[in-house]
Design a binder for these strands. Structure first.
Lengths: 144, 144
DNA sequence: GTCATTGCAAACCATTTGCATCCGT
DNA sequence: ACGGATGCAAATGGTTTGCAATGAC
């Protein structure tokens, strides 16, 4: 996402492009594949924008989530975490949480289409998104 | 779950059966199908145990979750919610969150077995549980 | 009697909010 | 210049914790 598109998207919604908003988005984009907490994002943004406030980070994350640029995660560690909402993926990827070492893995497959069709047929409920977490044991932790 | 079994399960883990613990479990069992918050459970338990403290409710919920008697939910309303972990179901049911009216619906189907097998094969990750939420629009809200 | 459990109040901590100032447009 | 955005500090609110008293076994 370059600044031009971002600015346009913001403008459509009546928002302004500020250095703080750009910086937060940049950091999340730069750390694609990671799951950053607001505090971590704050610390990273401060490296280039030392004067930014934590509240602004929170407000920006809310905005980015609303705009669908960012995806909010709850990985059961007591913090909210965010990752870039990568438009290139056909479907959302899922997270595997290892109950042994607590590491997070990702699965690119998203085979919930059948299930979502069934839900539409049987429950007359039109699914537009889902959040899925799998709990279990990774290869290393399975061996013990 | 009757008191005898509950007491036995607690004993196995070195815990004692107290009236507070029994009361919390009873309330959750009595409200099977609902999604109660700690505060709501506290209020309901207080009807029969007026002296109970909220901290005890929290501690008991942690315990019941550990023991697998209760299932912790996050339905995106800012509160943690709990429901009875019904042993009678073959699989866990899933929740549908209507983005229109915010109502919660349930699907009994749990067709994630294929997916979990694939995850085991491709990622060598042994799934033992999952949490799934579907977001969309219920029948009424789809009409608009 | 012993040791886990409880109730209370205080502490915690992530997140939100009020408000004066600042700044993008 | 206008109105949205920011930074700061204070407030919020769910959850956890310390501790003395209580109660299950």
């Amino acid at each position: 996402m370059n600044s031009i598109d971002f600015k346009k998207m913001l403008k459509e919604r009546g928002y302004k492009l500020t250095p703080q908003r750009q910086a937060v988005l940049d950091i999340i984009a730069k750390h694609d594949g990671e799951h950053l907490s607001p505090e971590e994002i704050y610390d990273l943004v401060k490296e280039t924008q030392p004067e930014i406030g934590l509240a602004t980070v929170y407000r920006t994350l809310l905005l980015l989530d609303d705009m669908g640029l960012v995806y909010k995660l709850n990985l059961d560690d007591g913090l909210t975490r965010y990752e870039l909402n990568n438009q290139k993926e056909d479907h959302r990827h899922h997270h595997l949480i290892c109950m042994g070492c607590k590491k997070i893995f990702e699965v690119q497959e998203d085979l919930l289409d059948n299930l979502e069709e069934q839900i539409l047929r049987k429950n007359k409920f039109k699914v537009v998104d889902h959040k899925v977490k799998f709990y279990g044991y990774c290869e290393d932790c399975s061996k013990e």
